[in-house]
Structures are given as structure tokens and as C-alpha cells.
């Protein structure tokens, strides 16, 4: 069952990352922590960074490496206008999908656990 949850998560991780950036720019670990705190559990760097790279290549986020005065430098990610539009469009489709699944499951008497 955990495999199924993992595949759902991978299917929607790009949208979750875009959503995590609507509050302003952020970096990899902070995004992982935010999503972890939202109930998705610990997100490994090996899962997150390739997604961030894909979003950058698609022009949905901008990335900039900035050296820090104290501590190590980091790549900061920021949502682009294109990313915001994609989040609205794809996020809306996901919610519609979620709504349909919920309706069918509710009719079958399934309850949330």
C-alpha cells in the first residue's frame, strides 16, 4: 500500500513544489521540510532535486545560486509567471480528479483513514 502512496506522491510532487513556492523563494531543504510538515513524510533529496531541475528547465521556476555570508551557499528557487499559470491549470485538474475519486469512493461507503 505504501508503494501506491509513493506513486501518487511522485505524480503530484511537481505541483506540490510549485505550490510551496507561492509564498516566495525557497531552497531545496526548506521545500522538503515544508512538504514533510504538510503530512507527506520525509522527502529525500534524491527525489526532490531532479524535480526542481525539471521545473527549472521547463521555465516554471527560476533558480539562482547565492553564496551566504555565514554557512554554505544555496540555490534559491522562485516561481515564474509561467509556473504560477501551470500551477493554477494543473492544480485545478488535479482537484477535479480528486473530486471524482472522492465521489465514487463515498458512494461505495469508503471513509477517510
Amino acid at each position: 500500500m505504501s508503494d501506491r502512496r509513493s506513486s501518487w506522491f511522485k505524480g503530484v510532487l511537481d505541483l506540490l513544489v510549485l505550490a510551496a513556492l507561492t509564498g516566495g523563494e525557497s531552497y531545496g531543504y526548506e521545500i522538503a521540510k515544508l512538504l514533510g510538515g504538510a503530512g507527506f513524510g520525509q522527502i529525500k533529496g534524491g527525489t526532490l532535486y531532479p524535480v526542481l531541475n525539471r521545473l527549472e528547465e521547463a521555465g516554471l521556476v527560476d533558480a539562482e545560486f547565492r553564496a551566504a555570508e555565514k554557512g554554505p551557499g544555496r540555490r534559491y528557487y522562485r516561481l515564474t509567471e509561467e509556473g504560477r499559470a501551470t500551477l493554477g491549470e494543473q492544480g485545478g485538474l488535479w482537484l477535479a480528479f480528486d473530486h471524482s475519486v472522492r465521489e465514487v469512493l463515498a458512494r461505495a461507503g469508503v471513509e477517510e483513514r
Binding site: 531545496g28 531543504y29 522538503a32 532535486y49 554554505p72
Partner: peptide
């Protein structure tokens, strides 16, 4: 590499391979 080093330092993962996966596979994904 600096960014990923900062990630490891911040999340306290002792084992980089457990966090990112085997280096070659991770490099291919990046």
C-alpha cells in the same frame, strides 16, 4: 555540489547515498 552539501548539513543526514541515492544514478537524474 555546494547546494547539496548545504542540504546534507541542514537535514543532518549522515549517509549522503541514503539521502540522494547512488552518485551515478543521481547525476544522471540531475
Amino acid at each position: 555540489v555546494m547546494d547539496l552539501g548545504a542540504h546534507l548539513a541542514e537535514c543532518g543526514a549522515g549517509d549522503a547515498e541514503a539521502e540522494f541515492g547512488p552518485a551515478e544514478e543521481f547525476a544522471r537524474q540531475l
